[in-house]
Amino acid sequence: MPIHPEIAKVLSTLPAPDGSPLDPEAVRAGEVAQVPPLEDRVPLYAVEDAMAATRSGDVPVRIYTPAEADAYGVLVYFHGGAFFLGSLDTHDHVARSLAKETGYKVISVGFRLAPESAFPAGLDDCYSVVRWAADQGGSLGWDGQNLAIAGDSSGGTFAAAVAAMAHDDGFDRITHQILFYPSLDLDFDVDRYASLRGNAEGYGLETAGLKPFNAFYIDSGADPADPRVSPIKREDLSGLPRALVITAEFDPLRDEGELYGQRLKDAGVNAKVSRYAGANHGFVQNFSWIPEFYRAFEETGEFLNRS
């Protein structure tokens, strides 16, 4: 099917890339300007800003409680933004929808960004908050059973990497991983995946933009050959948590996400790949107001609550 007409309308208004260098502060300011006012966001039982005291240091988090209950599953969420964009505020609406549709208590992580913080600062923050959530389970109302991690785009990179780091450390509390259109291979050779060519232009995220957008992270010390940076390069995927990999039809990163899901299955992991027709990269953040794409949150809830 063609790209969704509502997405096409928005894409038609975007200026063509002019090749000028990216200014992190300017791009961040543009993102902040798009944050909807509080009254337009999904209401929840409670939303609280806190500081997680972790082995990585104090990490800002935002805790979303969907409804009053005796205990909750916990979902730790890592926002996208090519490792230099995004914040607790820019992805607040995503975390709220995740909490609403899963019934889990969601902990969104305000991890350190490139280029101000060198690799692996942001990744360490994400992993440390997961360990903190398990350690603080009683005060969070954690049910002690369900501990999920999720991320969109580069946040999906972190989620996949955190799942592997936890496995290697013998930390076996993570039960689920949800990867929304993840960036899993930071080797941007356009011949590696057909979608890098087939979806190269005209769909928002463009293949030619992958290197400059990720340059802040790579230049901070993130080696694309390192499986913590490119999780698809991990040789042994066995023993990782069950996975839901959500991809977008018109996304240059589509094929690496789907290959990763297949490799998880081949390694014996309970994994599902779900491609959203007519969608582009970033649809969970940018176009979840379209019912067909809000479905990604509902599918996440079904995945997490399946017996």
Rank of each mutant, 00 (worst) to 15 (best):
A33K: 12
A267K: 10
F213R: 15
D169W: 05
A16E: 00
A148C: 04
C126E: 01
A71C: 10
D172L: 11
V47P: 06
S117F: 15
L44Y: 03
P17Y: 11
D266V: 10
V35G: 03
G138H: 11
D125L: 11
N270R: 15
W142F: 05
F297R: 02
I174E: 01
E25I: 04
P66Y: 04
L237Y: 04
R41S: 11
P36C: 12
A118P: 09
L75C: 12
P212I: 05
V10F: 05
L210E: 01
Q136E: 15
D172N: 14
G257H: 01
T54V: 11
A134M: 13
V32D: 13
E292L: 15
D236L: 09
N286F: 14
P15T: 08
I232Q: 07
I3Y: 03
P224G: 11
A67H: 14
T247W: 00
I7V: 08
A208D: 06
R96A: 02
L38A: 15
A121F: 10
T207R: 10
E299P: 08
R197H: 07
Y127E: 15
T175I: 07
D168Q: 15
V32M: 14
G81V: 11
R242Q: 04
R254K: 13
P227V: 12
Q285H: 09
S117M: 09
D92F: 09
E39G: 13
I174K: 06
D236Q: 11
R234F: 00
Y72F: 12
A159F: 00
A215M: 10
T247V: 01
D135S: 15
Q177F: 00
L179R: 11
P291A: 09
P252M: 03
Q285A: 13
V130Y: 09
S307M: 06
R96S: 03
R173F: 10
I7E: 00
D18N: 13
A279H: 02
P252V: 04
Y276D: 00
G86A: 04
P36G: 13
I3L: 11
A267D: 02
P120C: 05
G278Y: 01
F180D: 01
R96T: 02
A161Y: 02
L88V: 00
G57P: 09
I7M: 01
N146A: 15
V59P: 09
R96M: 05
A82K: 06
W289Q: 14
V61S: 14
A271H: 06
K105A: 06
W132R: 14
V269C: 09
D89R: 13
G144M: 12
E39M: 13
V106E: 02
E68N: 14
H79R: 07
